[in-house]
C-alpha cells in the first residue's frame, strides 16, 4: 500500500536522519536523504517525490525556511507536501518576531518537534500522503 511512496529527508544532522529514516524505511517507504538544501533541490529535480521532510536550522541559519519558500515558487514542486521537523517550534517565531508561536509563515503542511515518537511520525506522514492523494488524484 505504501511501499511505492517516495520520501525525501533534508536535514544536516546525519544521526538524527538515521533515526527517522529507519522508522520510515521500516514502514515500507522509499526514503532518500540530502544533507543540505542544495543537494535537496538536486534530488527534487531528479525524481518525483511524494513528501518532503525538512529541517529548519541547517548550515548558517534557517536554510530550511528558504528552501520551503523556494519550493513553493517552483510550479513543478508547489504541491509537494512538506513536513517540517525542527529542533524548537518557536525557532520559527524567534526568526519572525511578533508573530504567533505557530505562524503560517510559509505554506508547510505540518510541523513536528525533534525528537519525534515513531508512531506520531508515521501518523503525520500517512495523513499528509493521504491528503495529497485526494488533492490531485489525476496525477497518481
Amino acid at each position: 500500500m505504501t511501499e511505492s511512496k517516495q520520501l525525501l529527508i533534508v536535514d544536516d544532522d546525519p544521526d538524527f536522519v538515521a533515526g527517522i529514516k529507519a522508522i520510515l524505511d521500516g514502514a515500507g517507504y522509499a526514503t532518500d536523504v540530502a544533507h543540505n538544501p542544495k543537494d535537496g533541490f538536486a534530488a527534487l529535480r531528479s525524481k518525483r517525490y511524494d513528501l518532503l521532510l525538512l529541517d529548519i536550522m541547517m548550515g548558517r541559519g534557517a536554510e530550511g525556511v528558504m528552501m520551503a519558500r523556494k519550493i513553493r515558487k517552483e510550479p513543478a514542486l508547489r504541491d509537494l507536501p512538506v513536513l517540517i521537523i525542527t529542533g524548537i517550534k518557536e525557532q520559527i517565531a524567534f526568526m519572525f518576531p511578533g508573530q504567533a508561536v505557530h505562524p503560517r509563515f510559509m505554506p508547510v503542511d505540518e510541523l513536528l518537534e525533534k525528537p519525534v515518537e515513531p508512531e506520531l511520525l508515521l501518523e503525520k506522514v500517512r495523513a499528509l500522503l493521504a491528503a495529497a492523494g485526494t488533492r490531485q488524484p489525476e496525477v497518481r
Partner: peptide, 26 residues
Amino acid sequence: FASIVSHELKAPLAAVQQNLFVLERE
C-alpha cells in the same frame, strides 16, 4: 540563546533520543 541551545545542546540529544526510539522498536 534560543538558536544556540537548540543547536548545541538540543540537537545532539534529539538525535540520540530519535535513535533510541528506533532501537526500542527494533
